[in-house]
Simulated assay, not measured.
Amino acid sequence: MALNIKAWIISLRLRTLPLALSTVFMGSILAAGAGCFEWGVLIWASLTTLFLQILSNLANDYGDALSGADNEERQGPRRMIQSGVITLKQMKKAVIITATLALISGIVLILVSLKGRQLAAFAFFVMGLFAIAAAIRYTVGRNPYGYRGFGDFYVFLFFGLMGVGGTFFLHAGTWEWPVLLPASAVGLFSAGVLNLNNIRDIESDKKSGKKTLPVMMGRKPAAFYHLALLVMGWGAFLLWLIIFQDDNVGAWLSLIVLPVFVLNAISVFRFRAPLSELDSQLRNLSLGTLFLVILYVTGSLFVVC
């Protein structure tokens, strides 16, 4: 494929990668808190997650270009296929290569973390295949789920429950139900990022037949839905702190990032502002989620030390 470094970097959507890493970092610090941490798991889980996120980004460009969802009325950054810089054939090759890298990295992760545990290894291998398929099927195929309003559910599942919970299990080799609280928080914030993206693109998605939740419910209800995602996310995280981290005072350091989420929620209710202004809020919410995790990690380690 012809090499245009700038175009491919844009297509990778690097600003989405911090959100992907949030899941692995959260699952890893939870495992460390339970006395179970493996550097090999952290490294390979991070690589696998990054490949899956990049795969989703590239497949999204490919699928939206095929369907016509990426058009001149779209409010976000201009896509490279849409601009004619990258061809559909080149993007399809990139999707195949990235899917292969994600598969290889995932297999190594399983071998590193689940030695001798055949049943668990098989289960994670199947989940890995499911994750690769889901990353592609969001906008690609005869009936992509992203065009039927199911994107938020899959983001919550993969960035929250499976991403955080799965990482915890790979470290610890066991399961603890309270992990669902911080996992749900990260998943809900991740769904919020997708919702912002869909609110921004609501007009172009309507005309292309892409039925996201904002298209189906309307802009104002979508703003209240966004507020609900953030409130529920913080509710789950605060429950985790209050009930299960009462002796971990440093974990409360993560509350420093709360104003970022408050401003993010307020921005969605500015209905007269151009939808393109929501683009910066995508970055803010993605980085805000990562900083929440980093502050939680930092505070927890400070107390331990």
Rank of each mutant, 00 (worst) to 15 (best):
L3Q: 06
L263W: 05
A223C: 06
V303Y: 08
S113W: 09
D70W: 05
L103P: 00
K92W: 04
G235C: 10
I136G: 01
A223R: 04
D61Q: 02
M162S: 07
A273I: 09
R117H: 08
G250Y: 01
T87D: 12
L12I: 13
V262S: 01
I9D: 00
A2H: 08
L114I: 12
A265H: 09
F122H: 05
L229M: 13
Y138W: 09
T298E: 02
A251Y: 03
A59H: 11
N60Y: 12
E72T: 04
T289K: 09
P182E: 00
L194M: 14
A31V: 04
V303R: 13
L157V: 14
Q281T: 07
V126N: 05
S190F: 01
G209Y: 11
Q245W: 03
G165H: 11
R137S: 11
V260P: 00
S113K: 11
V257Q: 12
K211E: 09
C36G: 04
N4D: 15
I97E: 01
K93N: 02
R272Q: 13
S267G: 00
L109I: 09
R148I: 07
F122S: 13
L21C: 13
Q53P: 06
V95Q: 04
D201S: 13
L292W: 00
Y145I: 06
V164Y: 12
V155R: 08
S113L: 12
L278P: 05
S56A: 10
L88Y: 06
W252R: 02
N264M: 00
I294L: 15
I81F: 06
G128I: 06
A172I: 02
L19S: 00
K6S: 14
I107F: 10
C305Q: 08
A185P: 08
A251C: 07
Y225D: 02
D247K: 08
L278H: 08
M162P: 01
T16E: 12
G187Q: 11
V304R: 11
N197Q: 02
V41T: 10
A59N: 15
A2G: 06
G233T: 03
I132K: 06
A59V: 15
